[in-house]
């Protein structure tokens, strides 16, 4: 495990194990995820990468039979400590899902949802947040004249960028992305990737992807998961040009997947 240079870790994970009932999904994970960088999680289906990312904002606890062990610190705060409020963690750690999942509301209300649940009522402030978030997600120009239309009228790619904007509207520090482009066409994928590139100036981004080229294109660091274990975690360039582990090499070169 290489240590992280020049940046503070936003997440420090130590000896983390997770079970679904009797099945162990994550085994002894220890990682330090750097701040204001893009960290990609790659690996074949069922390797635990989605479980891992959902653990970081404790969404995994929505599944009833989950058991966990070990520690995860978000900015030096234990996220599992008894008095930790899961809502405030999720406010700082936004999430974008595999399939675009806008609410059945207008574009405006989708973005304003987060600020509203956190108590912002002032119309002017909301207007500003909506505009800023949509601009941040490179969607403003496309939707500024139809903010009050239903979000389902947008294309899949636009919906996904809307979901990114929605996550940004609560001003998180981290954005977790769980295969955000797997349901999108190549053009929309390119747009989202471009957006991720810009976002890393302001956010720490952790992205799960099954697309190795995508990880290579957009990430600074990559973690390779296999059967619930972290096989290798390194700077993306290094990992792709000179992997330490044979299994990483095999996966990256497409021998299995």
């Amino acid at each position: 495990m290489n240590d992280v240079k020049n940046t503070h870790p936003v997440y420090t994970i130590k000896d983390f194990n997770l079970w679904y009932g009797e099945t162990q999904a994550l085994k002894n994970i220890s990682l330090e995820i750097p701040e204001k960088q893009v960290t990609a999680i790659i690996g074949p289906s069922g390797c635990g990468k989605s479980t891992f990312i959902k653990t970081l904002n404790r969404m995994v606890e929505l599944i009833p039979s989950v058991k966990m062990e070990g520690s995860i610190h978000y900015k030096n705060e234990d996220i599992f400590k008894p008095n930790a409020k899961v809502e405030s963690l999720r406010t700082e750690v936004g999430m974008v899902f595999q399939k675009p999942n806008p609410f059945p509301k207008s574009i405006y209300d989708n973005i304003a949802y987060g600020p509203r649940i956190h108590g912002i009522k002032d119309k002017k402030t909301l207007d500003e947040v909506v505009e800023k978030s949509l601009k941040g997600a490179a969607l403003w120009e496309e939707v500024k004249d139809r903010l009050n239309e239903n979000a389902f009228g947008l294309s899949g790619g636009q919906q996904q960028r809307l979901c990114i904007a929605r996550a940004m509207a609560v001003e998180p520090e981290v954005i977790l992305m769980d295969e955000p482009t797997s349901a999108l066409d190549p053009l929309s994928t390119a747009k989202v990737e471009e957006l991720i590139h810009e976002l890393k100036n302001d956010y720490s981004i952790i992205i799960v992807t099954h697309n190795m080229q995508q990880a290579a294109r957009i990430s600074d660091k990559t973690a390779f998961f296999l059967n619930g274990e972290v096989i290798e975690f390194d700077a993306t360039e290094k990992m792709y040009s000179n992997p330490h582990d044979k299994r990483t090499d095999d996966y990256i070169s497409g021998k299995f997947g």
Partner: peptide, 21 residues
């Protein structure tokens, strides 16, 4: 389910999610 997930992921409480989504 993904409506609920989206709401929870933004830090909404269970009641807010039920009521607003």
């Amino acid at each position: 389910r993904y409506y609920r997930e989206a709401s929870f992921a933004m830090g909404a409480t269970r009641w807010q999610t039920i009521y607003k989504v």
